[in-house]
C-alpha cells in the first residue's frame, strides 16, 4: 500500500524534471556513427567498388529486401551487375553489414528517407554507392583474397608466397 503511494509520489515528482524529448526537426539529435540508418555501398581505398557480389547480405536480410546479380570484369574482379535495396521493406537491422565480408555495405546515421511514393524507396546501385570507404578506412578485400584480379597477380596479396613452379621437383 505504502509502495503504491510512493510510486505515485515519485511519478508526480517528474513534473519538475527536465524533458528529454529532442525537438526534431528544429533540433537535430546526435546520431552515433554506428547508428543504423540509410544503407550505402562503399569503395575500397583504391577507389574500386568494395562489393564483391557474394550475396551474403541478401541472405542475411530477414525481410529479403536486398537483391543483386554478380558479374565479373575481364580480369576476374567480381562486382554486382545491379544492386537493389527495397527500403520500403528494410527494417534497418544491420544484419547485412554484419554479414558483409568486405565492409562494402554499411548503415549510416541518416534516417531522413521519407517519400510519398513507395516506389521511390527502391534504391539501385547508383543511389547506394558512395565515393569513399565509409566507416572502415583502409580495408581492401582483394588484398587478402587469393583470386587474381586486374592489378594483382597471384602471390601479390598480403601474406602470399610467389606462385609455385609446378614443374619443379626440388624439395
Amino acid at each position: 500500500m505504502i509502495s503504491i503511494l510512493k510510486t505515485i509520489w515519485y511519478v508526480f515528482l517528474h513534473t519538475f524534471q527536465k524533458r528529454i524529448t529532442v525537438q526534431y526537426p528544429e533540433e537535430k539529435p546526435y546520431l552515433a556513427p554506428r547508428y543504423r540508418g540509410r544503407i550505402i555501398l562503399s569503395r575500397d581505398p583504391d577507389g574500386g567498388e568494395r562489393c564483391v557480389a557474394c550475396y551474403l547480405c541478401a541472405v542475411a536480410c530477414p525481410v529479403s529486401c536486398i537483391a543483386l546479380q554478380a558479374t565479373e570484369d575481364e580480369h576476374g574482379r567480381r562486382y554486382p551487375e545491379f544492386f537493389r535495396i527495397n527500403f520500403s521493406r528494410c527494417i534497418y537491422c544491420g544484419y547485412c553489414e554484419e554479414a558483409c565480408p568486405t565492409y562494402a555495405i554499411q548503415l549510416t546515421p541518416d534516417f531522413e528517407m521519407g517519400e510519398f511514393h513507395r516506389q521511390n524507396l527502391v534504391y539501385e546501385k547508383d543511389d547506394l554507392l558512395i565515393n569513399g570507404p565509409g566507416k572502415y578506412p583502409g580495408y581492401n578485400f582483394w588484398r587478402v583474397a587469393g583470386v587474381q584480379i586486374g592489378g594483382k597477380d597471384k602471390g601479390q596479396a598480403e601474406h602470399e608466397a610467389a606462385p609455385v613452379d609446378v614443374h619443379s621437383l626440388l624439395p
Binding site: 511519478v11 508526480f12 517528474h14 513534473t15 524534471q17 527536465k18 524533458r19 528529454i20 524529448t21 525537438q23
Partner: peptide
C-alpha cells in the same frame, strides 16, 4: 502522461 514521463 508525457509530463510525468519527461516528454512533451
Amino acid at each position: 502522461l508525457a509530463l510525468w514521463q519527461d516528454r512533451y
